[in-house]
Amino acid sequence: MNIVAYYRVSTDGQGKSGLGLDAQREYIRLAAESNGWIIVGEYTDTASGTIPPTERAQCKAALAACAEHDATLVVAKLDRLSRDVEDIAGLMKRVQFKVATMPTADAFQLHIYAALAQQEREFIAQRTTAALARLKALAGTGNKEAQAKVARRDAGREAAQKVGTGRALEAKAVNADNRAKVLEAELKACLFDGEPTYSAIAKCLNGKGVTTDRGNAFSAMTVKRLMARLNIALPV
């Protein structure tokens, strides 16, 4: 069986140091050797697990590779894909995938594991919120140590938010570029098959059932933006 390996780390530091990444690779390598799987591609995202898999650039590339090679997507652990049941259910409709640490688990079992992982994430969030509320209440009484902890947390969140916003914008641009490249052939076919106008190209794409990244029909404006991203101009 051909497989595409997908790895995810949450920070640049983990990605560069190999912290967590080497372990993921080893899990998949051992599972592949034990089950006779052939690794035909490997993709790695540095992204938060809260970002849906289909919005991560390398995960999208891995899904495309699975379709190209008639391969199964494999992750070391289920949470490398997502801890969200809805995300896991959506992926099950798009691609076959397996988890290296439980290679014999079927779709039903994986769905149950995802539900348990989501429940644990919710419990952790509840405990964190409760602990923070207690810390803020203590800080409100004038406790210096509690006040210092709250200040450090606020500073850390502000710094993380700035980094996260930049990464989100970068990921959005990468996703848009990848989507544009996927549509390039269809766009060029419409460009040279009829009137060379944005409206005519939009009509052609819609007639073929091609949609925008959001699943909407093309308009003259969305065609213009797509062509600008691909650096393609209308014939003079």
Rank of each mutant, 00 (worst) to 15 (best):
G13Y: 08
S34V: 07
L21V: 07
K16C: 04
G18K: 06
Y27K: 06
S34E: 15
N35A: 12
R29N: 11
L21H: 08
S10R: 10
A23L: 13
R25A: 14
S10W: 06
I28C: 02
A32S: 15
I39H: 01
G15F: 00
S17I: 01
W37Y: 13
L19Q: 14
R25F: 02
A32D: 04
Y27I: 03
Q24V: 10
E33K: 13
K16R: 15
G13T: 07
R8Q: 03
Y27M: 08
D22T: 14
G18M: 02
Q14H: 10
I38S: 14
I28A: 03
I28P: 02
S10C: 10
V9S: 00
G20S: 10
R29T: 08
R29V: 05
A32H: 00
S17G: 06
G18Y: 04
Y43G: 06
E26V: 02
N35H: 15
D22M: 12
I39W: 05
A23H: 12
A32G: 05
R29I: 02
Y27T: 01
R8A: 05
A32I: 05
E33Y: 09
E42W: 05
I39E: 15
R25S: 07
E26W: 01
G41W: 11
V40Y: 06
G41R: 05
S17M: 02
S17E: 00
I28M: 06
I39S: 12
R8G: 04
A31W: 08
A32M: 03
Q24G: 11
N35K: 12
G13L: 03
G18L: 06
W37E: 01
A23S: 14
E42H: 01
I38T: 15
L19R: 14
L30F: 04
A31E: 07
T11W: 03
R8W: 04
Y43R: 05
Q14T: 00
V9N: 02
L21P: 08
T11G: 02
K16H: 11
W37M: 04
V9L: 00
A31N: 07
Y27Q: 08
N35R: 14
R29P: 05
L30T: 14
D12R: 15
V9C: 03
S34L: 13
V40K: 15
G20D: 08
Y27R: 11
L19D: 12
L21W: 07
A31D: 06
I28N: 08
A31C: 06
A31I: 09
D22C: 01
R29G: 03
G13A: 08
L30H: 10
Y43I: 07
Q14R: 04
A31V: 04
I38C: 07
G20W: 05
